[in-house]
């Protein structure tokens, strides 16, 4: 058996396979299908200061080899998460990470601070793709200075592992990655969804209530691999790779491109057991290629 264990800052993962925020609920939804303790980690739904209803229906459209979503951060809010959800999931034998979202720096800090108090959450993933309501709705993650500022403020209140999730909807993702590294991030994860749009020509209407939405699934994978490779070469902190992963070979592309761990998103909808199949596939691959430690192939490209 090859060693699959990897590390993201202080977090030890039993294998590099985690789940992507917003595609795996709170993990419980998948308990009928897989043994959750076989995962390297679970990143729960984007969590904000208050409960949010998200965008109006319809907020999903299938596109070639992918899908658009405009869920819009529907979630129970950090208070309910800590009181009701956390006690239900805290003893799952894996790393539970909270995806922290917000519309202002204060909101990000407040959520991060409350999550900091949860013993069995070793880290957060800061979702800086959200629009900043105070700055005219511009995404925090699309401007290096703004991204650095939010990371710096959260860093002051959050002591454990701080992963910053980057949006691909920028001219240079490397610039953003360097800015958040400088500001104190322990790791970066990428990519979030790509801004896209689809039109129902029969009804002559946009498919989504919000007109535009986030593209995910197999179609985004080559872009994600490219970005992970670029960022892994530009920063010292560990990179978590995601975007379109649906099998072990996909995960291996990200690892070889320099990711220390991967996340699986949309593929969970097609096969709720896909994550453990990827774990098994990584083990098979290592055996076939006589690799003793998965870390030996990380970043070989």
């Amino acid at each position: 058996m090859a060693k699959l264990e990897t590390k993201i800052h202080n977090i030890v993962l039993k294998n590099p396979v985690m789940t992507a925020s917003g595609t795996f609920g709170y993990g419980e939804e998948f308990a009928d299908f897989i043994d959750l303790s076989r995962l390297g980690g679970i990143v729960v739904k984007g969590t904000t200061g208050e409960r949010r209803q998200g965008n109006p229906y319809p907020r999903m459209a299938e596109t070639p080899a992918g899908m658009l979503n405009a869920v819009g951060l529907q979630n129970v809010g950090v208070g309910t998460f800590c009181k009701e959800v956390y006690p239900r999931i805290k003893d799952i034998d894996t790393n539970i990470l909270v995806n922290v979202s917000g519309s202002s720096i204060e909101e990000y800090c407040s959520v991060a601070e409350q999550v900091d108090a949860l013993d069995n959450v070793p880290g957060i993933e800061l979702n800086i793709s959200c629009p900043n309501v105070k700055k005219g709705g511009m995404g925090f993650g699309t401007d290096p200075a703004m991204a650095a500022q939010v990371v710096k403020e959260v860093r002051k209140v959050y002591r454990k592992t701080l992963i910053v999730k980057l949006t691909p909807n920028v001219t240079s993702i490397v610039d953003i990655a360097k800015a958040v590294e400088q500001a104190g991030a322990d790791s970066v994860s990428l990519i979030n969804t790509l801004l896209g749009m689809a039109i129902d020509v029969e009804r002559q209407r946009p498919c989504l209530s919000t007109i535009t939405g986030g593209l995910s699934g197999p179609c985004v994978k080559p872009i994600a691999v490219r970005m992970v490779w670029q960022v892994a070469h530009a920063v010292q902190i560990p990179v978590v790779g995601l975007g379109g992963i649906s099998c072990a070979a996909d995960a291996l592309e990200f690892l070889m491109a320099g990711a220390k761990a991967v996340q699986v998103g949309t593929a969970n909808f097609l096969d709720p057991a896909v994550t453990v199949k990827i774990v098994d596939g990584l083990q098979d691959y290592c055996q076939r290629h006589q690799i003793e430690d998965i870390n030996d192939i990380i970043g070989i490209i």
């Binding site: 917003g22 595609t23 998948f30 999903m60 529907q74 909808f269």
Partner: peptide, 13 residues
């Protein structure tokens, strides 16, 4: 319209 069918994606509300 649904993506996951099991309450994980919140698309079908």
């Amino acid at each position: 319209m649904m993506a996951c069918g099991i309450g994980a994606c919140l698309c079908c509300v």
